[in-house]
């Protein structure tokens, strides 16, 4: 045993153990079964599109496939994210974890990483499905198909933010309200560019509120390049860099908020 049980080397391991256990829970609770629904949806769509479409097979498959990846993942992120900590409190499994040399922030971060890990694995399988469907309708890969990978990467960045928000809301609210808040923010955030456009033309107090809201809500629309890659458009490297930094910063802030609230919480 370590001398104090709380050294920084041990900390990394503890977060890793908690993350792995969260991943294991998701797998054993059959979360990955959503892949079956996804596979059925995509293969059905690919067969249908290949029979009725003329020259837009690729566009339809990329659009449908990536939208499905995003929606399936967001639903998982919200519904598991809101219960990540609250379920452990309700079921009192947290008591035997926090009575060990585990800091509360380590627990929150470990849970977050476990869920995002689950979503990354889920997305990897789904991505494989999207490329299989693409191959089925187009019979070969093209250079522009590489941008689909970037769109998938952006979808994973979306998941990071959604997970962090679900965790943040669940640190002070009920699971139902946390789900409502997170989903509402996902919808509003998906329209963030429109909100920013409105903020630019609005005047007075409305303009100030719209500007504040536009910059406060997560900008999911910047992370949505599905339409562009479906048309084979290239994604600038600057956007990849900007979106990566934005998603990491935004989720770090939401997790920090969750940790701050959880640190002070009495586990009655």
């Amino acid at each position: 045993m370590s001398s104090d049980g709380m050294n920084s080397g041990g900390m990394k391991w503890r977060i890793g153990y908690i993350a792995f256990n969260t991943f294991r829970e998701a797998v054993r609770d059959r979360v990955l079964y959503n892949l079956i629904a996804f596979a059925l949806l995509l293969s059905g769509a690919a067969i249908l599109v290949s029979q009725v479409s003329i020259d837009i097979e690729r566009l339809v498959v990329v659009n449908l496939g990536l939208t499905a990846v995003s929606l399936f993942g967001v639903v998982i992120a919200i519904f598991i994210g809101i219960g990540l900590v609250s379920k452990e409190i309700d079921k009192r499994t947290l008591y035997t974890v926090l009575s060990r040399p585990v800091r509360r922030w380590e627990f929150v971060v470990g849970k977050f990483l476990g869920l995002t890990g689950t979503l990354v694995v889920n997305t990897l399988f789904m991505s494989f499905g999207v490329f299989l469907a693409l191959l089925y309708v187009a019979h070969r890969f093209e250079r522009m198909d590489g941008w689909v990978l970037v769109a998938l990467y952006f979808i994973v960045l979306q998941f990071l933010i959604v997970c962090a928000l679900a965790l943040f809301f669940s640190s002070f609210s009920t699971p139902l309200m946390s789900a409502v808040f997170t989903f509402a923010l996902f919808v509003v955030g998906s329209l963030a560019e429109d909100l920013r456009g409105f903020a630019r033309i609005a005047r007075g107090a409305t303009g100030a509120v719209a500007t504040a809201a536009a910059y406060l809500v997560p900008n999911f629309s910047a992370l949505n390049v599905i339409g562009q890659v479906a048309h084979g458009d290239a994604i600038p490297a600057r956007l990849i860099l900007y979106n990566t930094a934005y998603a990491l910063l935004y989720s770090a802030m939401a997790i920090s908020g969750a940790v701050l609230i959880f640190q002070r919480r009495n586990l009655k």
Binding site: M1, D4, N21, R24, E25, T96
Partner: peptide, 21 residues
């Protein structure tokens, strides 16, 4: 003090554990 936790053991009332394990 974080060092305390490695020296103690705790059984909560009516414990519930990760039942998938």
């Amino acid at each position: 003090d974080p060092r305390v936790k490695s020296q103690i053991g705790f059984l909560p009332e009516q414990p519930y554990f990760y039942d998938y394990l």
